[in-house]
Design a protein around this nucleic acid. Sequence first.
DNA 1: ACTTCGCGTAAGTTGAGACTTACGCTTTTA
DNA 2: TAAAAGCGTAAGTCTCAACTTACGCGAAGT
Lengths: 116, 116
Amino acid sequence: MEAALKAIAEPRRRAILRLIWDRELPAGEIASQFDVTRPAISQHLRVLREADLIDERREGTRRYYRTRPDTMAALRRFMENMWDESLERLKFAAEFEEAKQKRASGSPEDRKRRIH
Amino acid sequence: MEAALKAIAEPRRRAILRLIWDRELPAGEIASQFDVTRPAISQHLRVLREADLIDERREGTRRYYRTRPDTMAALRRFMENMWDESLERLKFAAEFEEAKQKRASGSPEDRKRRIH
DNA sequence: ACTTCGCGTAAGTTGAGACTTACGCTTTTA
DNA sequence: TAAAAGCGTAAGTCTCAACTTACGCGAAGT
């Protein structure tokens, strides 16, 4: 997951992912779409593969690549969870503040305890 | 958006975002939660701020930081859109393939045209 | 006014990463 | 079996980014 996040942070790798989302393509065809050398793309493909973001299929001398929908879905869920968990915490914090208002107003020590 | 993606790719910055999601905290309190120096955290806060991921409020000598829900929401939507657009393309590609099956089986030139 | 507090910033170091060219490996073809 | 096709990998360069220590700056206390 960590590897996937760093992988999609790179614009070129996102472009590759979009290129091979709905169809598998051999490495050479992928490289021909960009203005960098073929080894550069090969190294990007390695990063994507180690992050489980693409599949590799070898056929003869060619290697076909294709985006893995399951890992992309997991990435999407990760963002949603980060969002949802935070909403939970926001809600909890609001309730906590409310309860605190009903108690006697806080001593100076209260602020220290809220932090950390 | 590019800046935000690279910002959340760093684990330490994600930890900071979680820390100040539901409550604002002064820079020093944030730094005390980590085992790196205060300037290091200050630089992380700068990156987050330039990506519009956090707000800064100055009060006296302190600077309070807090995660911006709107930018986080935009980030979440970005992932969803990347996913949805790709689903659209997948659907379209499937229809295209289906239509192609109904035509005469492809000549060798067809494969060339499918690529690029 | 002088000191202390709570910061950010400057400058330097180190490691990672996005590239390049050169090379080697495996599979097909002549 | 020799050559060519289609790749990945090694090695080197260069930029960037995550840290460190040293310093500076404005606001608050004394």
